[in-house]
Write a protein that binds this DNA or RNA. Structure first.
Lengths: 334, 334
DNA sequence: CTGTTAGCGCATTCAA
DNA sequence: TTGAATGCGCTAACAG
């Protein structure tokens, strides 16, 4: 059982002042003489008084709590992001309650409602699966909301996202500059919006160098080792001239490495390979994988900062913060 | 800006009953006639009324919120655990606020205080770095608290932990049964308590088969690839008769594989290697790594369930739930 | 079965 | 500069 909790009334009595004065001393608001302030704070310290967040929240109508909604905290992308978010939150003396949508839109909605009930001061909503309407409605019910890796153009909603397009451009440029001309693209799952942005970057970079935009060079794939291997096998067989591969993620890229081995193609001699994400494995395979590293921790930090800095949602439209991935050059595409 | 929130008073007025009746209808407490209950709930639905968690918490003295304190949510072990914890919490209609201690005991204390201020109903505290005294004090200030991977014998504190000792026993038995006799142990960081439990298991299994308990067979190592490689190199050079290795974690085990390669030793021909954790990499290296998999998600779920099921802390001593790791047999130690 | 009264612990009016 | 009353939105305890 928990011991009796000392309340503001106890402090007031002990200090011989009113509750209000204690409140003022604590919150540094309203005028108060330095003397009584000192005195009150001393009593506060002696009694080890700590205000109840609940009571304060009820009175002030804002908790210092923010909601973090992710598809799955066990996914390294989001756990890294969560770390960054909590760092930023803790720096601003805020707490984070997190929830997993497990990719279920209904669940996502119910989570957003629950967060309302808790009167969180804001929500960081990652990879929302909600249709635009539902998203805007849910957002309107919160004092503040920042989207991650999902834009809602024209809604005024702020968002933070990995600049997959710029990343893809950098990767493809790197391949071209190292002499590659027939560059294939393992595009990932068809429904992936980040995959779509990478495709745009891929096409833009190809166009930049007036290289053939042959649709046959791009193939969807499951975001797994096997998916990458199969897709790469098919692609390399159909187009033996391919000398460079840009892949949806590192797992697929490692699969592509296996495909090259299976086909007797040397990497990077005959085919150069670039992945995405810079997972641990990327640096450990042979040859080590060149890849795009995006700083998810930074992403989380920025999201929370945007939420808290909040010129609250009165945005003038284009308020997306883009996090540029960094190209990590290793042996697979020097 | 957020729209006006409908309160219990609005519902009461609209339904033509008292607030108390609304409260009863909602909470299914106190006697209430099925008729008025229906009626009230209808109004609740029509007005889309949702009770404020804050106000309710203030009145009832319990929030449906639990704190999750981890060293670092970005560590896959803890993000997986967090997933399990949130699953269980959500199933019980509870919310989770999480905090990272970043391995700092002072921070850990301050986090526990903050969670007090928030009046969480309980805390899941992972890998606490607090000295026993401080831990017990902090625990006494919370309505409920469950330890993860850290015991406080004789305190009555409940805990949930990976049974590293049993895991190590299983791993070493497996090696012995496949014919190994001189089994080395890469012990991990000296200060690690899980490392210590693994050492106990290692020694117990060796003793079981009356095998030499030579201290020279056990070597500390950094829990990294490099750490494992260096330690394994030294160990294998000093003891060329070693034909089996049990390693603190998978990274160290992969390092050990590299060491074997460097020394021209075949795996598993001359040396069999077993790791711990079953990280993604384990299945991808060549030869694929045999390893111990502990179900962290289950760990998190059990912790929350123990917290909520709570015969609250009036434990009779030995209330530790052990999660047994599972041996995953792959090529490195068939 | 239902309503009334009185807090939960704080901050926000107002006066003084 | 300080204090007294009032309310945040809900439930507990007691009535009736």
């Amino acid at each position: 059982v928990v011991a009796h909790r000392v309340t503001i009334a106890d402090v007031a009595r002990e200090a011989g002042v009113s509750q209000q004065t204690v409140s003022r001393a604590l919150n540094n608001k309203g005028e108060i003489s330095a003397g009584t302030r000192q005195h009150v704070l001393e009593i506060v310290g002696r009694l080890d008084y700590r205000p109840s967040t609940l009571a304060r929240g009820l009175a002030t109508r804002h908790t210092t709590t923010i909601g973090l909604v992710v598809p799955d905290i066990a996914n390294p992308f989001f756990s890294e992001l969560a770390r960054g978010a909590e760092d930023a939150a803790q720096a601003a003396s805020h707490s984070i309650v997190f929830c997993n949508t497990v990719e279920d839109p209904e669940r996502e909605l119910s989570i957003l409602r629950t967060l309302e009930d808790q009167r969180v001061d804001g929500v960081v909503l990652c990879s929302s699966r909600l249709p635009r309407e539902g998203l805007l409605l849910a957002a309107s019910r919160h004092p503040a909301l920042v989207l991650v890796n999902r834009a809602a153009p024209g809604s005024g909603l702020r968002s933070v996202a990995v600049d997959d397009e710029a990343g893809a451009v950098a990767a493809v440029r790197h391949l071209v500059r190292s002499g590659r001309r027939a560059i294939g693209f393992l595009a990932g799952p068809p429904a992936s919006s980040s995959g779509e942005r990478r495709r745009l970057g891929y096409l833009a970079a190809m166009a930049e160098y007036a290289l053939e935009p042959d649709p046959a060079l791009a193939a969807p794939c499951a975001p797994t080792l096997e998916g990458g291997r199969e897709a790469a096998l098919a692609l390399l067989r159909a187009r033996p001239d391919v000398d460079g591969l840009f892949c949806y993620n590192d797992l697929a890229a490692v699969g592509a490495l296996q495909a090259c081995t299976a086909l007797g193609l040397s990497v990077p001699g005959q085919v150069a390979v670039v992945g995405c994400d810079d997972i641990l494995l990327a640096g450990l395979v042979t040859p080590a994988l060149s890849t795009l590293r995006s700083d998810q921790r930074l992403l989380g930090r920025k999201a929370v900062e945007a939420l808290l800095d909040g010129n609250n949602g009165c945005g003038d439209g284009a308020d997306t913060i883009w996090i540029r991935p960094e190209l990590v050059v290793r042996a697979s595409a020097p």
